[in-house]
Amino acid sequence: MRRITLPPDALDSTDRVLINRLQDGFPLSSHPFAEIGEELGLDQSEVISRISHLRDIGAVTRFGPFLDAAAMGGAFCLCAIAVPEDRFEDVMTLVNAHPEVAHNYERIHRLNMWFVLACDKASQIDRVADRIEAETGLTVLRFPKLKEFFIGFRVHA
């Protein structure tokens, strides 16, 4: 994923309204883009072409269903590794190769690699984490969530 701030004029006010609206949810109906368009005063084809463009320029990373692993009998687990600097790229490649790694961040700390495992069976979390330990020879610290607080954050586009 790119980490470049778009120039201030990359999005017009309609793009911003559209991004904000689509963070709140997308209709489950036959013509959802037309419905969104009706709300915002755009026609269906413009809604579609704008979303497509926003995806192409990297203003949105995903558009679709967001899954909750726990609700389907699975689990998420935040994990951390202290990776020696000279092995960082190799370890990243090994970790990212697992489809269960949903995201992975380099952070400025002794524990410098932080990733989230998402599995649709809770028992797989330790299996994957153990496998990463075996592949890398490094300890994978595991921080499963005990309690999650309100997640209502929105980026104001």
């Binding site: 790119r2 997308f26 990297g58 269903p65």
Partner: peptide, 11 residues
């Protein structure tokens, strides 16, 4: 939810 994930950095 069914929605977009905006790219914080891009925005």
């Amino acid at each position: 939810r069914i929605a977009v994930a905006p790219n914080h950095y891009a925005l």
